[in-house]
């Protein structure tokens, strides 16, 4: 790879990073609110744009689902255009949707929203490796 080519790759790469939108399951529609322990049944998702530092709160319409809440919640994240999600945990069905949409899964450092965004920007978050088998509140 020539120098010019390598530089343009870096540029595109940087461009993608700058456009990063991250999703976090949160208890309430406020930045001071806490991270929600549940992905599928969290009341809200924070969609945070790391470039503009703007935040949007989406209601999680999957929260009251009889079953398959994780799938529906993941669909909301896919539709929001987020590139990454930071969550304490994630079920296997939700993870399958997120992975199919190339959304990166990171593990939260604690339940404070600002700390997690800071850790994301500093690149210190680790990927979420433990995907649980789901709690199946729908009692199939």
């Amino acid at each position: 790879m020539g120098l010019i080519e390598a530089m343009s790759v870096v540029k595109i790469y940087k461009g993608r990073i700058e456009e990063m939108k991250i999703a976090i399951p949160v208890e309430d529609k406020a930045m001071e609110s806490r991270v929600c322990i549940s992905f599928g049944r969290t009341p809200f998702f924070l969609i945070y744009d790391t470039e503009t530092n703007s935040s949007v709160f989406l209601e999680n319409s999957a929260a009251g689902s009889q079953g398959g809440a994780g799938i529906k919640a993941a669909q909301i994240i896919v539709d929001s255009g987020a590139n990454a999600i930071i969550t304490p945990r994630c079920g296997e069905n939700a993870a399958a949707v997120l992975k199919a949409a190339n959304i990166k899964l990171y593990k939260t450092v604690n339940d404070i929203i600002a700390d997690n965004i800071k850790a994301f920007n500093e690149g210190t978050l680790s990927l979420l490796n433990e995907i649980h088998a789901g709690f199946h509140g729908g009692h199939l």
Partner: peptide, 25 residues
């Protein structure tokens, strides 16, 4: 189909429908 499924067995990703067989009733 996705809006109809009350078990949320379907998802729409990258212009494709993904079916979760074991969630489908």
């Amino acid at each position: 189909c996705i809006d109809f499924c009350r078990f949320n067995a379907l998802a729409y990703i990258g212009e494709k429908i993904k079916v979760f067989d074991e969630v489908c009733h």
